[in-house]
Each structure stands twice: as C-alpha cells, then as structure tokens.
C-alpha cells in the first residue's frame, strides 16, 4: 500500500518497475501482486505515477489521484507487458474535485503468449470541478493469437465545463514494420524489441534515466520467445 499526499504546490513523481517472478512457461507459480496506491493533491500540487509492469503471475494495481485542490494535476503513465500465462489488470482512478484540475493517462499494454492484459480506469469529474480536463490514451498491442487485450474505461462527468478525451486502440504488431526492420538486416526478435520499445516511448520517457535503461531491457526479456 502506498499513499502519497502532495500539499500546496508540491510535486511527487513515483516510479515503479515491477519484475516479480511471473511463473513458468506453463503458468505454474509466480507472485500474486495486489497493490493499493493512492494519492491526494492539494492546490497546484502534482502527482505523477509511472509504472512498468513486466513481472508477477497476476497483477491488480490502480494507482489513483484525488485532485482535491484547484489547479492540481494527476498523471498516470503505464506499460504492462504480459507473456505466457500472466494476467495484468491495471489502470488508474482520477477523481476531479478542484477547479481547473487536469489529468493525463497514458497506458500501453502488450500481450503475448496466453496472457490477458486489461486496462481498467475511472475518470470522475465532480459537480464543483469546473474547467477540469482529462486526456486518456490506452493502447494495446497483441502478439499471440491466444492472448487477450481489454479496455474498460469509465468516464463520469457532472460538470459542463469539463473537457474529456479518451482514445483506445488495439492492434497486432505491424507486419510491415517488422518487414521493414528485417529488410535492413535486423533479426525478428530484435525488431520486435525495437518496435515495442518505440511503442512504449511516451511512458518510458517519463522514467528516470537509470530506470528507463532497466525497463527497456526488461521489456525485451519479458517478450523473449513470444515470436512465432
């Protein structure tokens, strides 16, 4: 359980790279990772959750922000990679209470093998939260015909001055992108790693330098053997 409180004009950036044991190729063993993470923002404060989830057999995790103070900002940047029999169900809650509050959600899910990967989130604009803004982008990349990618966003808006945008896409890894890389002499495995890292760039860029390098390697390792 993690609780963050950002008082007036304070800023917290909380970055996680999660790489618990995911179980073996048949889905035996592995860590069950159930986490509660929440944050409270006072006026002009900012909480930014960044996570890279590659491990655990089952992950349930929804880092949240209560944007209580006026002009407070909540951010959620997430990459979740699942392979073999892993399950990741992750997302965020952004509760807008203050005026001019702003939230951004960028979620990238990559599912390979027999895994299931879900984004589940809530954006709630309360009555008094005038001029609140939210932008959400949830993308899923599928790399196996028996894997699943799911998107369950909830948007609740009770204020007419709010501006909410949600976008989600689900697609297979680009055959033409793979071909292009391979035509330049790059192996399929490496091409996938390149493309996936590029796909997650927006989130990886949010991580501190040393974390980002680690995270990139983890992405490649997690997807090893997912080809074909």
């Amino acid at each position: 359980m993690v609780e963050l409180i950002a008082l007036n004009k304070a800023e917290i950036k909380y970055s996680t790279v999660q790489n618990w044991y995911p179980g073996d190729k048949e889905g035996k063993g592995g860590v069950f990772n159930f986490v509660t993470k929440r944050g409270l923002c006072e006026a002009h404060a900012k909480i930014s959750w960044t996570q890279v989830e590659t491990g655990s057999a089952v992950t349930w995790k929804y880092p949240s922000c209560i944007l209580k103070g006026d002009y407070s900002v909540g951010e959620f940047f997430s990459v979740a990679v699942t392979n073999n029999f892993q399950q990741a169900d992750t997302g965020t809650k952004m509760v807008h209470l203050g005026k001019h509050t702003k939230s951004t959600i960028i979620s990238k899910g990559i599912s390979a093998g027999h895994s299931q990967n879900s984004y589940r989130g809530l954006v709630q604009i309360q009555k008094q939260a005038a001029h609140a803004r939210n932008f959400s982008q949830c993308d899923s990349l599928l790399m196996g015909s028996v894997s699943g990618a799911h998107t369950f966003p909830s948007i609740e808006c009770k204020n007419a001055s709010a501006q909410i945008e949600h976008e989600a896409t689900t697609s297979k890894i680009g055959e033409d992108q793979l071909f292009y890389c391979q035509q330049r002499g790059i192996s399929e495995e490496k091409a996938i790693s390149l493309i996936v890292n590029g796909y997650c760039k927006e989130v990886l860029n949010q991580l501190p330098m040393e974390f980002a390098v680690e995270a990139q390697k983890l992405l490649s390792i997690s997807l090893e053997g997912s080809v074909g």
């Binding site: 033409d176 992108q177 035509q183 790059i186 390149l194």
Partner: peptide, 24 residues
C-alpha cells in the same frame, strides 16, 4: 534465405512506401 539474411548479404530494398515506426 530469411528476410534479414538477404539484407545482411547485401540486398537492399528502397521501399515505395517507407514504413513509419513510432517511438523508434
């Protein structure tokens, strides 16, 4: 030969429609 083997051996294709790879 596989696609990448051909490329490594020196066959280069300049694509009619070069592909975009976001983030890379």
């Amino acid at each position: 030969m596989s696609i990448e083997e051909r490329a490594r051996e020196g066959v280069f294709l300049a694509f009619q429609y070069p592909v975009e790879i976001p983030g890379v």
